[in-house]
Amino acid sequence: MEEAALSVQNLRAYYVTGHFGMQREVRAVDDVSLSVRKNEIYGIAGESSCGKSTFIKTVAAAIRPPLRVLGGSIKYSFLDRDLYDLDERKLADIRWNHLSFIPQGSMNVLNPVRRIRESFQDFAFPHMGLGRSEFFDVVNRHLERLQLSPSILSAFPHELSGGMRQRVAIALATVCRPEFIIADEPTTALDVVVQKDVLALILETQREIGSSMIFVTHDLTVHANISNRLGIMYAGRLIEEGPTREIFHDPLHPYSRHLVASLPRIGDLTPKIALTGAPPNLAQPPSGCRFHPRCPLATDLCRQASPELTTLSSGRRVACYAVASAPATRPMTNDRMTNDKFKSF
């Protein structure tokens, strides 16, 4: 087993609010453990409000009240101790140099009243420790690598198209050649045509600087094209993890089966069945397995106890009693979940 670039153990991060003695907590990340290998793109999928953004805020040490980390550990390979044992100054040192972030919605990220050059100065310049002219040499070369003309440095964000702005955001996040990149839905706001180019660019940059990456998006087709391994989150928990290819070929958890089965494809006209019900309210999560109110396979056990994420013999991990209890002879066939299973409920 190679050394992990990031290992997260039993992470719990809740939004805790208290008013007049009434305490309310939203369990956005509940007992998540995972590890990201070196040079790997680890995809996290899940619908909105499943806690994926909270998870990456926590691993990026970008938490603010009411979000609180209540337990667990986060260790990066470039750090000798836990991320939350660092003080503000040490954190500022590792940001951008070792750990950087490609945020969602590039239009809201760049300061609208500052030119791109000034954004580079604000973000990357203090971390690089280079002289001004050397710094801009590096930036120019980096922009060319990302198929951007260095002349965009003197442009304002509104003068650039959405795809270009997203590439600027990628350039900003990668110019210091960080070991670890966190990407939060970097292509969701983009057009299909632009999306493909941006994904190719992210992949190429990641390979070129040899960094590891957490890539978050709810769009499974994007994951199919970029992630090496995929973790699927539901209601604050990691419910399934495995190599992307295997998850697409043989999803184990009923929720992942549904996600994979409901993807529309060109050339496929079989009716797709949507999952009924709504994602649970994380302030009052359902008892037992959090998926049981929507699950076609739920039993009494699922209503009472919450399944642990167990490692199967194949090295994949899944949190479901129906799957884990009988890994050799699973209750369903090995091929993709047929929609008939979902018609019954």
Binding site: V192, A224, R265
Partner: peptide, 17 residues
Amino acid sequence: VRLRESILSLDDVERVH
């Protein structure tokens, strides 16, 4: 044709990985 090619398809799972 270009639009068609630029949609990400699931069959690319094989190719990419």
